[in-house]
């Protein structure tokens, strides 16, 4: 190979290398983005499930504790607001409010022994507690995925590809402050 040929071909080889590198980074970003998407879908499924369970719960409680109208009203309202919100940040706030309203409903239920013994109520309680747990675990997983994705998107040199192809920034699904400061366990 003569000198001239090397000079002629080297930009071409460089271009091909850059192209392959871009493809690899792009695909990596897409994988991470899909992970975030799937994780969010999981949260969404659980939130919807909770929304579906609440009317049943309200009906059951009504039969035993009709003069707790205010608490019931709060739950229904919180559910209504949560259903109508689409973006991640506001949704987190609305869903946390709903969690709070449900918590006070279950606290109220403690005062009604008959309600507490009702099989239907017990079942709903198990389902709602479990759904609440699932939301928590899905959030853990979603936030891990978002962290992975955002890191890759912002770090050099993959951020070049991310900017060119316009990869969006994703928000964390924040837990409620009171939920975060769990009591320290001592031995």
């Amino acid at each position: 190979m003569t000198k001239e040929q090397i000079i002629l071909y080297s930009p071409l080889i460089l271009l091909i290398l850059i192209f392959f590198w871009t493809v690899i980074v792009y695909n990596g970003l897409v994988v991470l983005k899909n992970q975030v998407k799937n994780a969010w879908a999981q949260i969404d499924v659980q939130l919807k499930r909770r929304h579906d369970l609440i009317p049943n719960l309200v009906e059951t409680v009504k039969g035993y504790a009709s003069h707790e109208a205010q608490t019931l009203e709060n739950v229904i309202k919180a559910r209504q607001t949560a259903i109508n919100i689409d973006n991640v940040k506001d949704k987190a706030v609305a869903e946390n409010a709903l969690s709070g309203a449900l918590k006070s409903l279950f606290a109220v239920a403690e005062n009604y022994p008959e309600l507490k013994a009702n099989e239907n109520f017990l079942q709903l309680q198990e389902e709602l507690t479990s759904t609440e747990n699932k939301i928590g675990y899905a959030r853990q997983f979603y936030n891990d995925a978002v962290l992975n994705y955002n890191n890759k998107k912002e770090m050099f040199p993959s951020n070049i590809v991310a900017t060119i192809f316009n990869f969006e920034h994703r928000d964390f699904f924040e837990a409620d402050v009171s939920e975060k400061t769990a009591p320290q366990v001592k031995f």
């Binding site: 659980q46 389902e127 699932k134």
Partner: peptide, 12 residues
Amino acid sequence: ENVVEEMSIAAG
């Protein structure tokens, strides 16, 4: 069933 679902979600 719920516990298994919860844990499989936590593990992704």
